[in-house]
Design a protein around this nucleic acid. Sequence first.
DNA 1: TAGGCCATCTGGTCCT
DNA 2: AGGACCAGATGGCCTA
Length: 174
Amino acid sequence: GGCGEGEGGGGVGSPPPRWRRRGRARSEAAVHVVKKNRRMKANDRERNRMHNLNDALDTLRSVLPAFPDDTKLTKIETLRFAHNYIWALSETIRLADQRQSAPLALPGLARLADAPSPGSDACSWMSGASSSSPSSASPSPSYCCSNPSSPASSEDYGLVHSDSLYSFHTFGIF
DNA sequence: TAGGCCATCTGGTCCT
DNA sequence: AGGACCAGATGGCCTA
């Protein structure tokens, strides 16, 4: 916050005539009311904006795999999970495409070695406020698994069960 | 009780 | 000028 409420400075010297003082007082009151109304409207818009944002997050939660204990993901967890979930689905599609193009070469197994999945390497799908950017060479999520704020059960379930293993089982990789 | 998460308010900044 | 977006502040609620 700052100080944006600077009212127009008063004059220096003798006070203005009575009519001017009264008129000025009225206009100040009017300005105050206008500002107050503007602020209330802005608050209302901001509230609606945040509600829309939360609705979008709820929609995102609804398309993500549910946890067995019906734990509601926090906002940050939802975003991170969605990010890794998209990555896992992309990997699944990529592996499927590779298998289709070369079904006898078992490229998936080779690919698993050089495409670290969040569930297979030392990292997981949540946390990572201090993680490096995933936009470097590898598109895989780089969030590390040592987030004390994330429930361990959620971490374990999130990708290992719902995404990686399930997907790899589905396509016969394992 | 401390810490995490959340909703809300608020002022600043940018855009139309 | 007004609206959208953003970040900081604040207080409430919940849980370990």
